[in-house]
Amino acid sequence: ELIWEQYTVTLQKDSKRGFGIAVSGGRDNPHFENGETSIVISDVLPGGPADGLLQENDRVVMVNGTPMEDVLHSFAVQQLRKSGKVAAIVVKRPRK
């Protein structure tokens, strides 16, 4: 059984690379294997702001206090874009 651990990460936006993450998932883009609608970190740019803080497959729980459960992919992207220079991101990942 999976035990999820929650992490809060504060990312500083890089002028060229943004937050250095890509997200997939969302209500309109469920996971191809299990139908899960979570917003998921799909890519972490090496050397970017999120490197060492976020991991691929982290589930995004909140962005700047806005819940990311059962939202559209575009909504999640929009929340990240409009967060200015700093984003507080809450993620969960299975305990190893």
Rank of each mutant, 00 (worst) to 15 (best):
L54W: 03
K85N: 10
P94H: 09
V90Q: 09
G20Q: 00
I41F: 04
V60M: 06
D70G: 10
A22F: 14
K13Q: 13
D58F: 02
V91G: 02
S24A: 15
L80S: 01
M62W: 05
D70A: 11
L72V: 09
R95E: 13
G25R: 00
R93K: 05
I39L: 07
E36T: 11
L11T: 03
G65N: 04
V61C: 08
T66R: 11
G52K: 06
W4C: 08
V86D: 14
V91D: 02
G35K: 09
L72R: 09
T66N: 13
R27Y: 10
T10R: 11
M62K: 14
I3N: 10
Y7N: 14
S24C: 12
G25F: 00
F75E: 12
R27L: 11
P46M: 08
Q79E: 11
V9K: 03
D58Y: 01
A22E: 14
R95V: 10
E5H: 07
L72A: 12
N57A: 10
K16R: 12
R81D: 14
G26Q: 05
T66P: 01
D28P: 03
N57L: 08
V9M: 07
L80D: 00
V44Y: 00
T66A: 08
E69W: 07
T37I: 04
D43V: 09
V63C: 06
D43F: 14
S24T: 09
Q12K: 10
L45P: 03
P46Y: 04
L53M: 10
G65F: 04
P30Q: 05
F32K: 12
D14A: 10
G25H: 00
P49E: 01
K96G: 05
N57V: 02
M62E: 09
L11P: 00
G65T: 12
G35C: 05
Q55M: 15
M62T: 12
Y7R: 12
I21E: 00
R17C: 15
M68R: 00
V71P: 02
V86F: 09
V77S: 08
V91C: 05
F32P: 15
R59P: 00
G35F: 05
K96P: 09
E5Y: 04
I21K: 04
E1I: 13
R93D: 00
N57P: 02
Y7E: 12
A87K: 02
H73T: 11
G47N: 15
K82L: 11
Q6K: 15
V23M: 12
S24D: 06
V91M: 04
V71S: 09
E69C: 11
L53H: 08
D51P: 00
D70L: 04
V23E: 00
P49S: 05
V86Q: 11
P46G: 07
P30S: 09
I89Q: 01
L2E: 10
S83V: 10
L2Y: 15
D70C: 10
S83P: 09
E5C: 07
V71I: 04
D28W: 01
T8P: 07
T66F: 09
P67L: 12
A88M: 08
E5K: 06
N64F: 00
V9G: 01
T66I: 12
M68I: 06
L80N: 02
K92P: 00
S83W: 04
Q6R: 12
F32N: 09
W4E: 07
N57Y: 10
S83F: 06
V63T: 02
P94R: 09
G18F: 06
V9R: 03
A50P: 01
P67F: 11
K16F: 09
E69T: 13
V77C: 13
D58A: 01
V40L: 10
D14H: 15
P94I: 06
W4T: 06
V91A: 05
V60P: 01
V91S: 00
E56I: 07
L53A: 08
I41Q: 03
Q12S: 07
I3V: 08
T66V: 12
K82G: 07
G65H: 07
N34E: 14
F75L: 04
S15D: 15
P49M: 06
V44P: 02
N57E: 06
L80Y: 01
P30D: 03
D43L: 11
P46K: 11
K92W: 07
I21M: 13
N29S: 14
I21Q: 02
S42M: 13
N34Y: 05
K82Q: 13
Q79D: 04
M62L: 07
R81I: 10
F75C: 15
P94F: 14
T37Q: 05
N29C: 15
I3Q: 03
V90T: 13
S83T: 10
N64I: 03
V9H: 07
W4A: 04
A88G: 11
V77T: 09
Q55I: 10
F75S: 07
L54H: 00
L80F: 10
M62H: 04
K96R: 09
K85A: 07
V60T: 02
R95F: 08
R93C: 00
S38D: 12
S74Y: 09
V91P: 01
G65I: 02
A87Q: 01
D14P: 03
S83M: 06
A22Q: 14
S24V: 15
I3C: 08
F32Y: 13
G18Q: 11
R59E: 04
T8S: 11
E56Q: 15
S74T: 12
A22W: 13
Q78N: 13
E5Q: 07
G84L: 08
V60R: 00
V86E: 10
G20P: 01
V40Q: 11
L53T: 07
Q78Y: 13
S15T: 15
V77N: 11
S74G: 12
L53V: 10
V60H: 00
M62D: 06
I3P: 05
V71W: 00
Q55D: 05
R95M: 12
P30A: 05
L2N: 15
L72C: 09
E5S: 07
V61Y: 06
E33A: 08
